[in-house]
């Protein structure tokens, strides 16, 4: 379970202090699919970054699967998120110098998984995502949808418990977007917790719960009607 209490994030530059998150309280259950919505600058991405251990909160507590992570140093956070959290970005963020196979392999390399195990897992995943024939292609040779599928493959290859997606369909047409959302839903059904930032009501409708942020605070939480059990 993920439990965030009274989370605050203040960005300080030389002259201005900006409060991005102002006492957020949130619980996400295992295998839950949560969509985070809100206008630009409301703190969605900041929340996602803190949830993903890419950033630390200024104050407050963050309990991730039973461990308090709010006060961790950067290197501790890196060590902790390895294999536990997978990221899907709006702009895919594949590494241009690596081909599909190598991009998907990267998290496993950082986790020091054996070569044979890597091969088994990657090939299984590429088959499932219908990317096997693109194995040797480089990102720039793929369509947007394919790139995002590779990015998802990379996010889930290490079998993380939590996937954080930051507008995963933002750069895709509706058909490809649909495909990606179906994939995320599928993963969620297999037991992966998903937190997704989105502007799209349609995408949000895939989630169990929609959290609306405004000025660094959660203003409403709705359980999605379409997906309600």
């Amino acid at each position: 379970m993920i439990k965030v209490q009274n989370l605050q994030k203040v960005f300080t530059t030389e002259e201005v202090e900006t409060t991005a998150l102002n006492g957020v309280n949130l619980e996400i259950q295992d295998a839950e699919f949560v969509a985070i919505m809100g206008p630009s600058g409301c703190g969605k991405s900041t929340l996602l970054n803190i949830l993903g251990l890419l950033d630390a909160p200024t104050t407050g507590s963050y309990n991730l699967y039973g461990t308090e992570v709010a006060k961790m140093t950067e290197s501790q956070r890196v060590a902790y998120r390895k294999g536990v959290i997978g990221f899907v970005f709006q702009s895919f963020n594949l590494i241009d110098e690596l081909n599909v196979y190598e991009n998907v392999e990267l998290p496993l390399l950082y986790l020091k998984v054996s070569a044979s195990e890597r091969k088994r897992r990657i090939e299984e995943l590429l088959l499932r995502l219908n990317l096997m024939h693109r194995k040797k292609h480089f990102p720039q040779q793929l369509s947007g949808g394919q790139q995002q599928r590779v990015a998802i493959a990379r996010a889930i290859v290490a079998k993380p418990r939590l996937i954080l997606a930051d507008e995963p369909t933002g750069n895709l047409d509706s058909k490809n977007g649909e495909e990606v959302m179906n994939l995320l839903q599928e993963l969620n059904k297999e037991g992966t917790t998903i937190a997704m930032v989105t502007h799209s009501q349609h995408d949000a409708s895939y989630a169990h719960r929609i959290i609306n942020l405004f000025d660094g605070n959660i203003v409403t939480e709705n359980y999605s009607t379409a997906m309600e059990k």
Partner: peptide, 13 residues
């Protein structure tokens, strides 16, 4: 950006 991605997916310093 590449460094950011690598760090996000588990690359240590």
């Amino acid at each position: 950006k590449e460094v950011g991605v690598r760090k996000a997916i588990g690359g240590s310093n």
